[in-house]
Simulated scan of single mutants.
Amino acid sequence: MKINGHVVTSPEPDTRLLDYLRDDLGLTGSKEGCGMGECGSCTVLIDGRPVCSCLVLTGQLAEAEVVTVEGIAEHPLGPALQDALIKNQAVQCGFCTAGIVVSAAALLAEDADPDEDRMHAALEGNICRCTGYGAITRALRSVRR
C-alpha cells in the first residue's frame, strides 16, 4: 500500500485504515466523527476515489494508493482549496474540513468546472454543521476558475 506516495508496511489486516493513519503514522488530519461512514470527516482518497477511512480495513488495500488531506496539502490544488475555504469563510470548527478538502480535490481532479449539482453530489457525504454548504460551494467555484 502507498500512502501519500510512500510505500508503507501494512499493519494487521483487520486494522481500520483511520486508526492506522492516526495512531501508527501520525496523520491526524482525518478525524473520527461517527465511525459509521456517515459524516465524512475521515474521508481519504483510495485510488482517486473518496472513501470513509473508518469503513476500510488495511487488509483490503494491498495494492492501493491512499491520499490523505496531508497528501493533498502537498499537491498544488490543496493550498488553493484551503485558501478558498478560508477566504469564503467556509470553515469554522474545522472538524469537517479535511473530508471536504479531500472530496473537493477528487471532484476538481475529475471536473475542473463542476456545476452546482456536481458540487452538491461530491459533498453529500460530508456533514458540516457550522458553516453550511453555500459558503463551501462558493469556495469551490472560486477554485475552479
Rank of each mutant, 00 (worst) to 15 (best):
T137S: 12
A139S: 07
L107I: 08
L140M: 09
M119S: 06
E124P: 05
D117N: 13
C130E: 10
L140A: 04
L108S: 04
A112W: 07
A105M: 05
R141C: 09
P114T: 02
I127H: 04
L123K: 12
L107K: 11
H120I: 13
D117A: 14
Y133W: 08
V102Q: 06
G132Y: 10
S142Q: 08
Y133R: 10
V101E: 04
S103E: 03
A121E: 15
A106H: 02
I127N: 08
M119G: 08
R141K: 15
R138W: 01
S142H: 07
E116P: 09
A104I: 00
P114D: 07
A109W: 06
A135L: 11
Y133H: 11
D115V: 00
R118Y: 00
E110A: 15
A122F: 01
L107V: 00
C130W: 12
L108A: 10
S142T: 13
A109L: 12
R129P: 13
A139N: 12
G134K: 09
S142N: 03
H120D: 10
N126G: 12
R129V: 01
A121H: 11
H120N: 03
S103C: 14
D113L: 03
V102E: 07
I136Q: 08
L107P: 06
A104C: 06
R141I: 03
A112G: 13
V102S: 04
M119H: 02
S103R: 08
A106D: 00
L107T: 01
